[in-house]
Design a protein around this nucleic acid. Sequence first.
DNA 1: CCGTTCGCTGCAAACGCTTGCGGACCATAC
DNA 2: GTATGGTCCGCAAGCGTTTGCAGCGAACGG
Lengths: 335, 335
Amino acid sequence: MATMQDVARIAGVSISTVSHVVNETRAVAESTRVRVLAAIESTGYTGNAIARSLVTGGTKSIGVAMSLLANPHLAQLIHAIEAEATAAGYTVLIGDTLDTSDGERDAVRRLQARRVDGVLLTPVPGDTATLDALARSNIPAVLVDRVSHRVKLDQVGPENIQSTSALVSHLAGAGHRRIGFISGVDWVGASEERTLGYRLGLGRAGLRWDSNLVAGGGATHEDGVLALRRLLTVPERPTAVITGNGAMTGGAYREARAHGMRIGHDFAIAGHDEVEWAELVEPGITTMAHPVDEIGRTAVRLLLARIADPEREPETVLLPPTLVHRGSCGCHADG
Amino acid sequence: MATMQDVARIAGVSISTVSHVVNETRAVAESTRVRVLAAIESTGYTGNAIARSLVTGGTKSIGVAMSLLANPHLAQLIHAIEAEATAAGYTVLIGDTLDTSDGERDAVRRLQARRVDGVLLTPVPGDTATLDALARSNIPAVLVDRVSHRVKLDQVGPENIQSTSALVSHLAGAGHRRIGFISGVDWVGASEERTLGYRLGLGRAGLRWDSNLVAGGGATHEDGVLALRRLLTVPERPTAVITGNGAMTGGAYREARAHGMRIGHDFAIAGHDEVEWAELVEPGITTMAHPVDEIGRTAVRLLLARIADPEREPETVLLPPTLVHRGSCGCHADG
DNA sequence: CCGTTCGCTGCAAACGCTTGCGGACCATAC
DNA sequence: GTATGGTCCGCAAGCGTTTGCAGCGAACGG
């Protein structure tokens, strides 16, 4: 593989001139520049990021540590991150946290050993050891998707309270008085916030909180099935239900149908998280679509800002989901 | 950040001794070893992969270049790749090809500039310029998912001919005589192979090829809708249809239902590619599930083998999809 | 004609590590 | 005493860049 030496020799200049041509770091006579460029072309010289990193100290790369399996929006999120990073001249390294504390620790360590300039992390619920280590070590880091106020780091994630509240308002506006809620447990913070939003929404609609209408869910399709099954046994059945995440929405949808209810008519469903198949079923599912793209891009922007200025005050950005209106909420609103 | 110099100074030895202790590359007196280890501990020395790479010439990293948006199995594939790579001590860098020739070229270049030890590439259809460059430059590379016999590189992908044939046999075994086929255009090779498999399956089932039963499809949901609509206008309507990819399966499914047909009873559908929502609809969709995980792992193994021995004869591995039996084929086979 | 400025370029010292070569020291054998 | 071998260790040459410093003509003002 061609080096600067090779280019310099062919162009008949010193390597410093080659370097300055490549990086445009000082004026070079046009004739020389052309010769160097020609030499680069003919050798196929691409530059050695390793050597450059060694002297500059930075790698122009960022690490992304998250659960590659558990994240339903992984593809979209990675895409957004990669796009924003590439635009800024950064490369993305990935590390799987396996959704375990140990996996998280190892993933971040591997990334650090690679000398990434910063880390994007979707933390594993429950254990803040890695987060603390990250905060202490002063490695630029941004938490993505799972936000916690307990940590002093930059963070980006979906806004949960107002958006869940909006979901309740929407259903209440369609006439529902008994609105169930299937909460998630994936990440205590988000789940709590959504429950809070649910409560807030009830209050705004003038409805009363009824603990019978809240089913502690989980994270899987099956959890959704079981949770709705339970909700349908309470005395005054709910006529609508809000689900805490995408997989459970599917479970609830299926269970409602299994009970012979016509979704959108006898029963309304609205869920958090956009899912791929939301409009492939009939009726389509009304969801709060997370701004996944925006979350990814913002995460990178925050990270680059921190890399540029490590002394910045940590910032938490909450991005509001948008209501995507389909048939399952039965409100017959057009548009 | 602590360097070997620091460790050496504290331990009162030379940096070469530190290096040999860290890498266990030559015998070091136990007493010295302990001192060095203690110094490492006290400084929190972690080693600098950059500097090491510069001298060893390898980075212990691989690049993954594919379309981050267009690949429906991205998450699963990346997960498999990352797992296999990490197990071998390699890190994964990603690059988005944007599914364009230019994007592909740029992505591979960026990866090369990072001096990855090898590249996993899902090539953009049509343009083999990057592939040729890769083959010429002798950078270890493996093509993933989209296989072409025209290229002299290692490759892994799904087997198309036999598996499509199996799909036809399955439907024929359930009594269908008029079996339609909606072909894809995403990647000429795969599409051709699947069409060939369709033909082969017809032959094996003793059915005749009827060009009216083949609809040149596309890659999107909408393409599936239109293709099936056309197939349903031919004189002797098909009673079953095979689709060329996941998105079109959804379109066909929806269109069949729009025609008032009860899928699994009046009409059978079976598709290529597993889709997330295959069992969320009623009836579930019978599909040929690609061995995504196995493809990812095999790709990494092939790549590492090539890195270890660049003179290997290029190898093409075709992995058979498995028939995932659900209700949409209407064959009422149990299990 | 001389001193100064300006435009252009090269030299060489890092960056942090790996590794071939050889030196110092000690024990054993003759 | 010398030769032989073995055990430990340090020296220093790179790996391919970036970049501060300095040099060299040519042009220019006085």
